[in-house]
Amino acid sequence: MNLHLVEAPEGLTRRARSFLHAHCLRVDSLPVGQYRERWLELGIPQAEIERVATYGSRWGGLALPPAPHYDGGPRILDPDIPEGSPGERWWFQAGIPRTAVPYGFMIGPNGEFGVHSDRWVPLHSTVEGWVESVALAYHAAMWAKVVTKITGDDVGALQLDGHTAVPEVAGLADTWWRGTDSLVAIYRGEAECMSAPQGRTAFIYSGLDDWGLHG
């Protein structure tokens, strides 16, 4: 396996670019071009193959440190053969899981990053959103004076008055919120995917100064 220093893709925040440079490496990824003809023979549309190729070019082989939820998330961002049918929507693998989890990390029909088991739950509307969320979690944990974890029904009872959504994470099932001196990360995707509301989790990062809030 060949290792490469990470050149951060365009379109990420300064915080995420610094995170990739400091904590991530690139390894070899799926050579989509070698499979193109075979996938076409299997009835996979050209447009879906191009989606996989574009993802592989931008994100393939990116080895991330553990995310704070989803048993660490994907260990390596790396695509695989699209799954679906001409009469259905198409997904493909987002990355190789770090541990054995009862769902796959997938890229959805509209480019969402999410988890797929018996149901599809998009976590972020873009792959960039997932990367930004992991980077923000490391940043917040470093600068917060107090980190509080809550689960289950307590997550639904969180009061977010005075907080604004953090736009760069492109949150769907999972969201980040910024307050006057705190950041709140809410993870609902795994609970929705597994129909287990008790699995909802939130982290409250308190006591942040302006740098800790915005980085």
Rank of each mutant, 00 (worst) to 15 (best):
P82L: 02
E83G: 07
G84Q: 03
G84I: 01
S85V: 02
E88M: 10
E88I: 04
R89F: 14
W90H: 09
Q93L: 15
I96E: 12
P97D: 05
P97Y: 06
P97R: 03
T99D: 14
Y103Q: 09
G104C: 13
I107C: 13
G111A: 08
G111M: 08
E112C: 12
F113D: 03
H116D: 14
S117A: 15
W120D: 09
V121Q: 11
V121W: 07
L123N: 02
L123C: 08
T126D: 06
T126W: 04
V127N: 09
G129R: 04
S133N: 12
V134P: 01
V134K: 03
V134L: 10
A135F: 02
A135K: 06
L136H: 01
A137G: 05
H139E: 02
A140K: 00
T148E: 12
T148A: 01
I150R: 05
T151V: 13
G152Q: 08
D153T: 14
A157S: 14
Q159R: 14
L160S: 01
A165Q: 13
A165K: 12
V166P: 02
P167M: 03
V169P: 10
A170E: 13
G171E: 05
L172F: 00
W176G: 03
G179Y: 00
G179P: 09
D181L: 04
S182H: 10
L183P: 04
L183W: 01
L183V: 06
V184R: 10
V184E: 05
V184F: 06
A185K: 07
I186Q: 13
I186Y: 10
M194S: 06
S195D: 15
Q198I: 14
T201P: 07
F203M: 01
D210T: 15
